[in-house]
Design a protein around this nucleic acid. Sequence first.
RNA 1: GUAGUUGUAGCUCAGCUGGUUAGAGCGCCGGAUUGUGGUUCCGGAGGCCGCGGGUUCAAAUCCCGUCUUCUACCCCA
Length: 446
Amino acid sequence: MKPSLPKGVRDFTPQQITKRNYIFETIKKVFIKYGYQPIETPVMENLSTLTGKYGEEGDRLLFKILNNGDYLSKANKAALEKLNSNALTSSISKRGLRYDLTVPFARFVVQHQNDITFPFKRYQIQPVWRADRPQKGRYQEFYQCDVDVVGSDSLMYEAELVQIYDEVFSNLNLPVIIKVNNRKVLAGMAEVAGIADKMIDMTMAIDKLDKIGIEGVRGEMQKRGISNEAISTIEQILEITKLSPLKEAFINSEIGTKGVEELEQFHQYFDLKTPTNEVVFDVTLARGLNYYTGCIFEVKAKGVKMGSIGGGGRYDDLTGMFGLKNVSGVGVSFGAERIYDVLEELEGFPKEDTSALKVLLTAFDADSHLYGFSCLNWLRAAGINADLYPTPSKMNKQLKYANTRNVPFVVIIGKNEMDTGQLSVKNMNTGEQQSMTIEDLIQFLS
RNA sequence: GUAGUUGUAGCUCAGCUGGUUAGAGCGCCGGAUUGUGGUUCCGGAGGCCGCGGGUUCAAAUCCCGUCUUCUACCCCA
């Protein structure tokens, strides 16, 4: 049988894991510094927890898990006969793989509401699954790094989360542009244009502005049944780039005004410190997920053709679906896979691998191999990453192995070394070789 | 879900309008070099040509289906 993998998923080599961990560690360090605590949730959730939270498209992309046992005996026979997959699904699948980390987190908060104190600040770094067609920067299994805080509507957290974005990408030496908008501004826009009921259609259209241009957006809105009059109102607002004129445009829209005020307050906090990266207000930022209600964020890498590498926003009533009302949350997500791809393209990964092997011991015969193993114990006891070639064999072969392991130092042990206690230590970069005792070697490598 | 694209040695890929035994580079193994790597030279192993069906005297090559790869759309990190 030829080994293979399902589409959209990947193995990771040690080299790749090292790089991925570099991203995860950098992110995690910032999360912890800002006072967030880790949680984990299971890879599978009840399908009822997941469905209906991500819109129609999201439901289609959910991975469903077939029930165990004789699932057909309990299947919806009518749906089966009519070959109606949608109706059949709920009768043969009660579980699914999580689609993101936010909804499971909402469930977690409701279920553990008595064990946690609000505001609750958590971070979560785990894989999620989407049955999407794979393409550039898009996989069916990928990691998300989420930070959220629930139980407070303070705009301080919006500012804090954007600071986290700024700090993480600055630590990764990855220049980004962080876009900020507010769902209420979009709602105000729809209201002013007299199409409050078509807000979703409007936002989906203007979200594509930088891809299809203003003409494309116009066509898209027409296609979605928005009148030309409304479109021209929307276009006028889209040209606004500052908050104060926007506020004037929303003089007759309570929700739009509220949105601008929230953005103003966000800036009061955020402007107290100068960010490293570019942080801009962008009315055209819409973001797909339907549960956002306040500020929304999106991060794009500069100088690389890649979709967004992070996004998030405030959601006022996510836990309401699970029966806990009036708990506001705000959070952002880092797309680790895309950050990886961008860093790879920009050659932004650090050269040195501190976790790698420091020294490889080699031996010529059975006696020196045993002797080498005891040296190995000493080195490891001293906390030095060390290894011994598994069999005494030709030096040629052992040194070639050392090359592929990319080891900076090799210790060569034979009869001479055992007799004198002076180990031969070879620098694999320069080829230089010197003799020293095991104590000196430990000192040397520490 | 729609459209295009890809699949040949471990990896990257050649292989013409169908025609004997399917190639190259890199990697791997062995040797030159029995206590010294990266360079060089010599030798060797390794292939259901993605899978299934069809056309044909004859298919890696043409046709159909299917899976996979990458890409665009949709949507999204």
